[in-house]
Design a protein around this nucleic acid. Structure first.
Lengths: 230, 230
DNA sequence: TTGCAAATGTGAGAGATGCTCATGTTTGTT
DNA sequence: AACAAACATGAGCATCTCTCACATTTGCAA
């Protein structure tokens, strides 16, 4: 799923997340084992209630061994978050690669957002991680970096389609769209399904209007006739 | 700031937040003292790093006394959050009361959002509380209730202006708009000021398009010509 | 004023959990 | 076989939230 230059079977997560880079096969397997057990425990009881002692026990290792690889509890969650992000980036890049017009951009956006919604609905662990996010500064940074990364993918395409719009306007709008997409997701999966669906649809409608002409806020939008500050 | 039926000088927070309802003047002052010290400590080091022992010490009371009034640490933060929410609701209701047309709705939205942005910029404690939010389930509930309350205020006005749109569509869209407003805020104040301003403007532009005609997604929007799922 | 019950105050410490570190064991290499 | 580096271990340290048995203060009625 993750394309890396490394020939290793283990995807190279952000190296700083691991306290010790495992060099022996045994320890590389152990890292995967830890992550798998942590995922199971998060699914079962949530990342907050997950205890490091439980992870160690379930993985059949000592607590000290656990801390040999992950500097703290948050690092485990962060590693899982980065894996999900990498998957998302692949999807986004693949879908946006086909876009050559504003109409296609709108279609691609709707397709991607539906995929994202389905992922959130199907992955309780992913939901939990994003919930736990705000509690952890480093995780919040990762989330913003992800929004920026996705935003850049979008802005690159968008800017080509509306060349006369200032690039920083597009960048900020794209960044915001990505970030609010995450927020919409978390909201949609926290209410009942019918309302969640309405919310997701409302978001998509809200956003695709920005892909109308002349960039964010441009075109035939009512902005032109309003006295908006700044 | 908070209008209550109670003649008491102390605003009646959600009673369930307090472990023991203070009946003597001394203890009522003490609750205020606790909240004031907690606010100062959050401003200084953040709610996460704030220690209950510090709050007690700064307030000049014992740790046991502290827990006499607040069942746990989160309850203090929750109480502060509810006070901010009450203030926000007053502003929203006041501004929306004047609205009699879609154009006025757009104007009111921009005014309110600017006020909100200024509040976020000026109140580090408020920012901290919303950051700590996702870590605490009860606080998250409060936040969603707040979005629902604000959403209802908006939906009531909006529905009157576009009577032919299904009410549940309006409700969900209004709810989403309020929630994403919070998300936009948190994002805007976490980046540098210039980008924060661009983000806030992008959000306002995005939203006021929904106040165009025929309700969310209605009117001359490109939605009509798109094959959107559901 | 005095007595008394209810309200309030106190702080040592119980309980829980993340994480460390000194020490022991395994692995790969020469 | 010998040895260094990598890896494993778990008792226990550090920290923090929150409790509880007991002391003190307050308001009020006699």
């Amino acid at each position: 799923m993750i394309s890396e230059t490394s020939p290793s079977a283990v995807p190279a997560e952000d190296e700083t997340a691991l306290r010790r880079t495992p060099s022996q096969k045994r320890s590389r397997e152990r890292v995967e084992q830890i992550l798998a057990c942590a995922t199971a425990l998060i699914q079962e009881k949530g990342s907050d209630a997950m205890r490091m002692s439980e992870v160690a026990e379930k993985a059949g290792i000592s607590i000290g061994s656990l801390y040999q690889y992950f500097p703290d509890k948050a690092a485990i969650v962060r590693t899982l978050a980065e894996r999900y992000n990498a998957m998302c980036n692949e999807c986004i890049a693949a879908e946006l690669a086909k876009v050559t017009s504003l109409a296609e951009l709108r279609d691609a956006f709707c397709v991607l957002f539906d995929i994202y919604y389905d992922m959130f609905l199907a992955e309780p662990v992913m939901r939990d991680i994003w919930s736990a996010m705000q509690a952890d500064k480093a995780l919040r940074e990762i989330d913003l970096l992800q929004s920026r990364a996705g935003g850049k993918l979008l802005a690159d395409v968008w800017a080509r389609l509306v060349p006369e719009t200032p690039r920083e306007t597009i960048d900020s709008a794209a960044f915001l769209i990505m970030h609010l997409g995450d927020c919409t997701m978390r909201l949609a999966v926290s209410v009942d399904r019918a309302e969640g669906d309405r919310i997701v649809e409302a978001y998509k409608r809200m956003i695709i209007r920005d892909f109308v002409a002349d960039g964010p806020g441009g075109g035939a939008s009512p902005i032109d006739i309003l006295g908006v500050r700044s």
